[in-house]
Write a protein that binds this DNA or RNA. Structure first.
Lengths: 348, 348
DNA sequence: CTGTTAGCGCGTTCAC
DNA sequence: GTGAACGCGCTAACAG
């Protein structure tokens, strides 16, 4: 309403939007006081606070966070790097992360890598432009460039969805290797003779590769003398349709297999439904195990035996660790193993 | 390496990170020239450009986008408001949106509402703090406060996932009503006698409600004289498990129904798998239709008859419309109906 | 508890 | 084609 005095000198554009100075003028205080009301309401008298708050409402002021960021050197954002937005498990982790961070006043900015280390590099660089106060990453394997950029940024970093002895900074996850070794142990206990690992693996999907490792070491331990059988196809999309494709390929290649261990529930579900179509009795003729405990695992007939991983909790725990660090409290722990759980259902 | 000259006067913190001035010093040019190389590489001599680019690499400079935003009054971000991050259909829309926007140099910042209009208001306000250059919204129904905030922001807005005669600004979507009316028409053509609408509806999920509307008008048109039968449960989560719950409730309430129209494939899939368990033959004893054409629809046995909606394309088209506007080109159209398609499979 | 002052890192404007 | 000066909107530091 009130036209602000035109400044002399070099003419600039200015924003059309209401500034803190506008609010201050309406409230009859200085801009600094408005700022204080916004960031520490207890630090001023109730009357001042109310006057300012009324002015904020009447002017419909919305604080410009870019200016705040520049002046305070805190962006109040956390960058999250995940393989794919549309992959439900990572979306769940994000939801956990975001829920906790929002409560602490942080916004999450997301970058996705499409399972490529090169793209991860580009994504991290791009996100650094926003000067996030912390980073959240899926995976523990990164290019040297990524490690160096994050080290130079000198901000808290949490890696997740895997396990390593030497994280960049902090870690919350579980061991993909041990998870598959546990699956092989279960296979042995249940009397299966020839468990086979079947998976798709995008080039940068280290977690899938770690699962294969776990299968291999599990076989050495629980099936001594038997060569591991694995079928891993690169560049197959992570869809149920791929599961059906992989089922046929695995049956052709390892006809004597009595149990297929899939690297993901999505593939396992596709395979199980394909078995229904092909008239293959599960688990009598062929047993199937998945990984991830997606919701569908519990709805299929028979239910899918699988390994549950703490998708949401990883996000939540990561967020808590970050908030703690950002408040410069003493971190509870540098690494947090949330484990996995083998869920026994009908399919194996 | 080179310690910057300590400035006199009021001591500030400064960032530890490399600034444009540092790069300029290394390259032996002014900061201004560095800025120009970054945003208009053609606008200076190749030698200058190379010197600057070398300096950027050697210093590992990453531009501070908050400062850029403040100086240029363009944040190069687009805000996207969706009901849930972990809902696969919206994640797909986001992926489409993000892919196209990234190419144009824009980053997407995401807010989620949990299907609540109140939360949408808070989310929009919060996102406005980042001064996005444009907004993307799922849905066409919003509170007055949301409409007002967006109007005052005076930036391009695209709404999606629905249809309305009077969008806030631009619109890319389809009619949920017509989609369900088409489903009822299909039911009638296929000889079903008592199609029943079954759904879950979170309080702020207007799309689900519009589908119910479409069912009701479809019934009036194609089943004159028959009262519509619908079972809509509020506050049931959108999961396959809810589908199984709803199946039982619907059978108890409308025992003579021969076709259940679910408001989402997730529910329909859960119901179809529950039928397998209960020994109900689909479609002979009970037919089932879904909505959304999720991947599972094509893998189930029988395949799920459903209505496909352009999840990814809505995001892509929205992004194209926004980019066009942001480049202040003449918009191709204010509204874009991407339609829907009934996919006939075995379940109905 | 509140006001004043200076400057965060960059892009725009203008001069050369 | 390149440089100098100024200010975007906000907050830290300091004074009272």
């Amino acid at each position: 309403m009130t036209e602000p005095e035109k400044r002399q000198g070099r003419r600039r554009f200015g924003t059309n939007s209401v500034t803190m100075a506008d609010v201050a003028q309406v409230a009859g205080v200085s801009a600094q006081t408005v700022s204080r009301v916004l960031r520490d309401p207890e630090g001023c008298t109730p009357q001042t606070r109310e006057r300012v708050e009324a002015a904020i409402r009447s002017t419909r002021y919305v604080q410009n966070l870019a200016a705040s960021h520049l002046a305070s050197n805190r962006s109040m954002t956390v960058a999250a790097v995940i393989p794919q937005i549309a992959a439900s498990v990572f979306a769940e982790t994000l939801q956990g992360l975001s829920n906790v961070l929002l409560q602490a006043g942080y916004q999450v900015i997301i970058g996705h890598t499409d399972y490529s280390h090169e793209r991860e590099e580009a994504v991290v660089r791009s996100l650094l432009g926003r000067r996030p106060d912390a980073f959240f990453l899926v995976g523990t394997r990164h290019t040297d460039a990524v490690r160096e950029m994050l080290a130079r940024a000198a901000i808290p970093v949490v890696e997740s969805w895997a396990w390593t002895r030497k994280p960049i900074d902090q870690l919350v996850g579980f061991s993909n290797q041990e998870a598959l070794a546990a699956a092989v142990a279960y296979a042995q206990r249940s009397g299966y003779r020839h468990p086979t690992f079947v998976g798709a693996a995008r080039p940068g999907d280290d977690r899938a590769r770690e699962r294969l490792d776990g299968y291999t070491t599990g076989m050495a331990r629980h099936y001594p003398g038997q060569a591991p059988r694995s079928l891993v196809v690169e560049n197959l999309p992570y869809t149920m349709g791929s599961g059906s494709t992989l089922l046929e390929a695995a049956r052709a290649r390892f006809p004597d297999s009595d149990l297929l261990l899939f690297s993901s529930d999505l593939l396992a579900s596709g395979a199980l439904l394909a078995c229904q179509r092909l008239g293959i009795a599960v688990p009598r003729q062929l047993a199937i195990m998945g990984f991830g405990d997606y919701e569908i695992a519990r709805e299929l007939n028979p239910g899918l035996t699988t390994i549950a991983v703490p998708t949401v909790r990883m996000g939540e725990e990561a967020a808590r660790m970050l908030v703690q660090r950002l408040r410069s409290e003493t971190p509870a722990a540098r690494k947090r193993d949330l484990g996995f759980e083998l869920i026994e259902r009908g399919s194996a």
